[in-house]
Amino acid sequence: MSAGTVTTPMVEIKSVTKSFGPVEVLRGIDLTVRTGEVTVVLGPSGSGKSTLLRTINHLEKVDGGQVSVDGSLVGYRRSGDKLYELREREILKQRTGIGFVFQNFHLFPHLTVLENITEAPVSALKRSKAEAAETARRLLTRVGLAEKAGAYPRQLSGGQQQRVAIARALALEPKLLLFDEPTSALDPELVGEVLDVIKDLAHQGTTMIVVTHEIGFAREVADTVVFMDEGRIVEQGPPSQVLDAPRHERTKSFLSKVI
């Protein structure tokens, strides 16, 4: 996609570690994601891929190492050789630049589809209600749900809910989109409609990191495929390499089970 041109990194992850009690979930992760690229993270359950994704918008605090997005540290401010933890307000502000799509959608059930999408632009970015509603309707058209603006989330199918969740994330015009297993909670026949929306975004040059089990999607859309196991990155590279000619035994055995 960006072959030949020099691109600045959108995400830089440096030797990140994270434990939950005695369990080491991330054991020194280094990863660079360039602007405009799609990175797909694969790996077995418990390999730390969702946790890694959650450190990028500081939903999960790292124990060691640093994460930067678009050149600024996530969750901290550096002054000299000290890192100062940011106030919650500053962290919330950072997050408005990073869209996050959850496995279980987490739409707000008591708000209509339109209100779900306009809530953050109005309260976090101080947009006017009319402006936010206009953007929301445009985004709903884009994900094919223009007629559902007044519906409540529980009146929608899982696939429709996830498309609303994507529109909700896009409403903040983020420079980076993070997807945490966006199709894992869906009935098989609804997976396609959500993947189509994500593919569409990828083709428009949105920088995104997608944690998924959809190998076909990875092959079609990813610029880089990252394979994780036991809190480490085992191998990474273009899909043609990682998916079709994996170098590590662990990658081979994982792929042989999921394809």
């Binding site: 939903l59 959850f102 809530e119 953050a120 903040l172």
Partner: peptide
């Protein structure tokens, strides 16, 4: 998940 989603959206 509701507070997580709200926090991820940067809602004050």
């Amino acid at each position: 998940g509701q507070t997580q989603a709200a926090a991820a959206l940067g809602i004050p």
